[in-house]
Design a protein around this nucleic acid. Structure first.
Lengths: 353, 353
DNA sequence: TTGAAAGCGCTAACAA
DNA sequence: TTGTTAGCGCTTTCAA
């Protein structure tokens, strides 16, 4: 059923080839200086605004530049003042994680802020046990700073970055107190949601959680347990299913919850929640009548369910914005907070009614 | 329900600040040359392998380099030979599109190939009517070439790139015959799937399609219509719903299909298909008994449905791989094919049984 | 086989 | 206010 090529309307094109020849007519600062009969220092000053320069020549230079579309070569500029005008953006390569819109959204925020400083974003895709791309970028000095998109309990990226001399911030929380962290206030978010549901009369909770090597899953678990204790309920470790990374383990946990007459299942993220919901839907288990379900992370994966799902809502883009601003501040030598926590929203919906 | 900060176990960190001080002890080619009592030309030759050099000195240099962890400064190298060692990766910023795993997967492929040449990926996020990020990157000469992740019928990115002198390739098809294109063979894929279903006895088809400004949607439509004609059925324009960009329009189209006793709905992509499926599920319409559904694009959005969904399967990562290889070939002056079409797989499942 | 020197395109002391 | 000059760290021609 597969094929490589076939006759189509485009087949004409498929048989055509092209090749590229460089034709560089790029104009340099020397050209501008020469044409205007000034030194390149003057041109440089007119553009950067640094150093004194008469308004007259400044205008002359600026006009010429605009007319002949001169753009300084950023790489040369960078070489002269030891900057790359790039910041590194580190994202996980495991497809289960990459597919989540979260990182794209974060990146939008990063990119938006970076652009305001004429900075660009350089990608490094890392795996739990292979951070070679990140190493290359940093060792090649291609970036002035790095933003790490997620944190692990044992995080090779962070270990590596700490040893190198690039400034960096992480999105997420790190056990490592030396690291600058931007995160949502997961712990309070989870605590609050749990607490609220308890105040509505729900008593028997279970938690189905993902990979405990992800810091965020640990945090969410802690928040959940805080919520229980806050309402005077002791945590039953048997009701906490962590490291449910496959559909099977999640479904198995869901099954058990059912048997054990759990009233409400809290899911560490939307993926897990989706799996739980699908499982119940297939088994014909009614939500919220037979069992209630809530998620500690919302996304449009959960969008289309009936009933709609109670969940915590965050703003990934804002995370990127703050991370990037913080990084810039840090790079420029300003004092920055070691840990910034962003808000959240508790959205109560039908699934816990 | 939202908040900015609160007392948590981390509150200690939240009140701590840090600041960064540069400490550059980077070793340069001059240092290496000096230490070894040779010229930097020699060091350069030892590393690059270009030019003659005695095996002895070559080894000496290499050893020293390894011992003291010398890495050439890629930016300086780039300045000297007019390369940036970056390629631009252009993706749409509209969230409905960004959220799709497609671009992430493509990028994985691009990144994998780029790394083999010591190249990195620079991101440009563009919108249908705002390609300023792309312009900046190109005008700032931050990249040696560009890969565009999707094509529009009226594509500002392509228009801009054509006018500039950067080599570029697009993933997807372009009306513009001058553009180097890497795409899946959508037209044959759609033709084949339609054809196969017809051979199974299905007669009344409808197509629900997305934004016609996306080239791929046009292509899929053409493939669909080819399939019909191939089996001797005339295309009923009334059965083709294009530009269904919102849930509402999709659902409306689905409704109509029902009323008009369509036997099988073909969806241009997985999003649309999802909407159709949810609609029918809510209305209690049985698939495939009451109506059949198939999708021209598969992804895990469709993963969890009962029954499983007949769809076309592609390999986005491969698209990235081929695009990046092609770009490198093109940059280095090799002849490249103007249009490369990659394969597909027809996956028949329960939804069309 | 090796090195001196010019140059990639820009910035920034220091002078004038 | 403007220009001279010396880099930034590397490559590459040309000579030795």
């Amino acid at each position: 059923m597969a094929q490589e090529e076939k006759n189509t309307a485009d087949s004409a094109l498929e048989n055509t080839t092209v090749h590229f020849q460089k034709e560089q007519n790029k104009i340099t600062i020397d050209d501008v200086a020469g044409a205007l009969g000034v030194s390149k220092t003057t041109v440089s000053r007119a553009i950067s605004g640094k150093g004194r320069i008469s308004e007259g020549t400044r205008q002359r230079v600026l006009e010429y530049i605009k007319k002949y579309h001169y753009r300084p070569n950023v790489v040369a500029k960078g070489l002269a003042n030891s900057k790359t005008y790039n910041i590194g953006w580190v994202i996980p390569g495991e497809s289960s994680v990459t597919d989540l819109p979260f990182f794209q959204r974060c990146m939008m925020g990063v990119s938006e802020i970076a652009a305001t400083q004429d900075y660009d974003i350089l990608i490094s895709i890392v795996f739990e046990h292979d951070i070679s791309q990140l190493k290359r970028v940093v060792k090649n000095r291609k970036v002035d700073g790095v933003i790490v998109g997620r944190t692990l309990v044992e995080d090779k990226s962070i270990d590596f970055l700490r040893e190198s001399d690039v400034p960096f911030v992480v999105i997420g929380s790190s056990m490592d107190a030396e690291v600058i962290q931007i995160d949502n206030d997961h712990i309070n978010a989870c605590r609050e949601l749990t607490s609220i549901l308890m105040m509505k009369g729900i008593k028997r909770f279970a938690l189905i959680g993902g990979d405990t090597n992800h810091v965020v899953n640990q945090t969410r678990r802690r928040g959940f347990e805080m919520g229980l204790r806050e309402q005077g309920v002791a945590v039953d470790p048997g009701m906490v299913y962590m490291d449910c990374e496959t559909e099977k383990t999640v479904e198995h946990a869901a099954e058990e919850c059912l048997e054990r007459h759990v009233e409400c299942i809290m899911c560490t993220d939307d993926r897990i929640c989706q799996t739980v919901l699908n499982k119940f839907s297939r088994k014909g288990i009614g939500i919220p009548e037979q069992i209630k379900v809530a998620s500690f992370y919302n996304s449009d994966i959960l969008e289309n369910y009936q009933p709609s799902i109670t969940a915590l809502q965050y703003d990934p883009k804002e995370l990127g914005v703050v991370a990037c601003k913080t990084l810039f501040d840090y790079i420029s030598g300003k004092e920055v907070q070691k840990k910034v926590l962003l808000g959240y929203e508790v959205v109560l919906k039908g699934s816990t009614q």
